[in-house]
Amino acid sequence: MSTPLLAIEGLTAGYGGTPVLFGVDLAVPAGGALALMGRNGMGKTTTMRALMGLVPPRGGTLIFDGTSLRGLRPHRIARLGLGLVPEGRQIFPTLTVEENLVATAAPPRPGLAPWTLERVYALFPRLAERRRHFGNRISGGEQQMLAIGRALMTNPRLLILDEATEGLAPLIRAEIWRVLSVLKGEGLALIVIDKHVSALAGLCDQVAVMEKGRVVHAGLAADFAEDAGLVGRYLGV
């Protein structure tokens, strides 16, 4: 079996004196797509924040393309090739769309087609139309497109999306899923947190379900989506 692009083993982390993660194991192969699912408050975002160095891991290993991420600052982790689309988008409200994109631009990676303004605008034509608009003057759907474009401008090898389509209108959600399918088809590895089981199953190869800071189910995304019992057990309210 080939070595995964990302391997997380035994990850523990928390906030202050409160533990949140209890031995999380995840793996993503090069070009693969993992759906990370679970009810609210089960540790999904904390896992991604620990991966990106925004929450200090307390234990376990995080290996990306042979390099340990433990102890690295977020900007160094990003330079290694991990791009984050955070929950809530967190774009720069007083910068224009184009300034938001340029602000995170990083050099291209050998062997990969570089992400440029032109390429982002081709992926999201609406951003090209809004390129001179400030971040706080565009719609929520456009802000999510911008957050994805901003992450792509770092030229990542793995793109992480936390709540990829939360709060978006159906047409915008469909556009985001289309774009993610295009990116996967181009060989970009993905970790996607979202609540839309069928859409995730259509995009992702594997699924990991979290409950109370642990991975309680892992397997094929399509199989999980087709098992109403599993979906109800782990995602039902």
Rank of each mutant, 00 (worst) to 15 (best):
I63F: 01
I63C: 13
F64M: 04
F64P: 03
F64Y: 07
D65S: 06
D65A: 14
D65C: 03
G66L: 05
G66Q: 05
G66F: 02
G66N: 12
T67S: 14
S68F: 02
S68I: 01
S68R: 03
S68N: 11
L69A: 04
R70C: 14
R70L: 15
R70T: 12
R70I: 15
G71K: 07
G71I: 11
G71R: 06
R73M: 09
R73V: 10
H75N: 13
R76T: 05
R76P: 02
R76M: 13
I77D: 00
A78Y: 01
R79H: 13
L80E: 00
L80P: 00
G81I: 00
L82I: 15
G83K: 02
G83I: 05
L84G: 04
V85Q: 08
P86T: 10
P86G: 09
P86A: 15
P86K: 03
E87S: 07
E87M: 08
E87H: 10
G88N: 09
G88I: 05
R89C: 05
R89G: 11
R89Y: 09
Q90Y: 14
I91T: 12
F92H: 04
F92C: 03
F92M: 05
F92Q: 03
F92I: 04
F92V: 01
P93S: 14
P93G: 13
T94W: 08
L95V: 02
L95D: 02
T96W: 03
T96Y: 05
T96F: 04
V97W: 06
V97I: 07
V97M: 06
E98L: 05
E98K: 09
E99V: 00
E99C: 01
N100M: 08
N100H: 06
L101D: 02
V102D: 10
V102Y: 02
A103R: 00
A105L: 12
A105W: 07
A105E: 15
A105Y: 02
A105H: 14
A106N: 11
P107L: 09
P107Q: 12
P110M: 07
G111T: 06
L112E: 11
P114G: 10
P114V: 07
W115D: 02
T116I: 12
L117K: 08
L117P: 04
E118D: 14
E118Y: 04
E118H: 09
E118G: 14
E118L: 07
R119S: 15
